[in-house]
């Protein structure tokens, strides 16, 4: 950063969310720089002391390593590299939630595709197999029975990365065609939306709609605790409500996409995030 600005927005792609955050910073008269990680090089001589970097990078690995490198050069990154590391990995998230005693769907981790059959037997069919690092619901696969598992796991075994051979198996929660997204900034829940879709994966990126949902104390408390469990100051926490009304934490998103939430709520989420980052930069 060759500027006196104390705040930077890290993003290789300026989507609705990044554009709104930058506009909010402009409206507030805050000096900031847009840092594109595609051209970022951090050496052992780099100094980012007293800089606050709002991490809005779309790619998980670039977000993670850029955050780590910037922290090593003295920057404070929102969210921290550690939070991105945990929330970007489904098993690490599950592990962090379990360590805090938070409810999460029953999950098993198998170290090979072959061992995944045992994991599936223990979780029970139907179950869900998810990539450890993945987004927008890609490659998340519902497995109704052992015959389907044989084919799916053969495909998984043929994938090139060793990490893809570690199999994350989770119970398929019987639920309505929706989940609940709670936005958390600085330990406070801003609100909640139902995300309702035509298929069982209720990602907005897969066409699910965001519909305003009343934020209860239970939602808020659970979402704030989940964000804290992974160390995220800014987070989108996904909750599932089963047919009996039991809530579980499905995942925590550290670089949250909030367009659907903002449109459903008329809450200026971008301004809340900008204000939070600004306060950190001024602290």
């Amino acid at each position: 950063m060759t500027t006196d600005a104390r705040l930077a927005v890290l993003a290789s792609r300026v989507r609705f969310e990044e554009k709104q955050i930058m506009a909010a910073l402009d409206r507030r008269g805050v000096s900031f720089v847009h840092l594109d990680p595609r051209s970022l090089v951090v050496t052992d001589e780099a100094h980012f002391n007293e800089k606050v970097v709002l991490n809005r990078e779309i790619g998980h690995y670039r977000a993670l390593y850029a955050a780590s490198a910037l922290e090593s050069a003295g920057a404070a990154v929102l969210n921290t590299a550690a939070a991105t590391h945990v929330s970007g990995d489904k098993w690490l998230t599950t592990s962090a939630l379990m360590a805090k005693g938070l409810p999460t769907p029953r999950t098993a981790l198998a170290m090979t595709p072959e061992a995944a059959f045992d994991a599936l037997d223990q979780i029970g069919y139907p179950a869900v197999v998810k990539p450890l690092v993945g987004s927008w619901g890609r490659l998340v696969t519902a497995i109704p029975d052992r015959a389907t598992a044989v084919g799916i796991l053969e495909h998984v075994a043929a994938l090139p990365s060793p990490q893809q051979h570690i199999i994350y198996v989770q119970e398929l929660v019987e639920k309505a065609d929706r989940d609940i997204r709670v936005l958390v900034v600085g330990g406070e829940a801003l609100g909640a939306t139902y995300r309702r879709g035509d298929e069982w994966r209720t990602n907005v990126a897969r066409g699910a709609l965001s519909i305003r949902c009343e934020l209860t104390n239970v939602h808020a408390k659970l979402a704030v605790a989940a964000a804290e469990a992974v160390g995220a100051e800014i987070a989108g926490v996904d909750l599932l409500e089963d047919d009996d009304g039991r809530l579980t934490v499905l995942e925590v998103n550290d670089r949250v996409e909030f367009r659907g939430f903002q449109e459903a709520h008329e809450i200026d989420v971008a301004d809340v995030i900008a204000s939070y980052a600004m306060a950190r930069a001024e602290a």
Binding site: I58, G59, H60, Y61, G134, S135, W136, R138, G236, E257
Partner: peptide
């Protein structure tokens, strides 16, 4: 410029 292709780890 032509926008980059979506990569496997993009998104939340």
């Amino acid at each position: 410029t032509v926008a980059p292709e979506v990569e496997e780890d993009w998104g939340e």
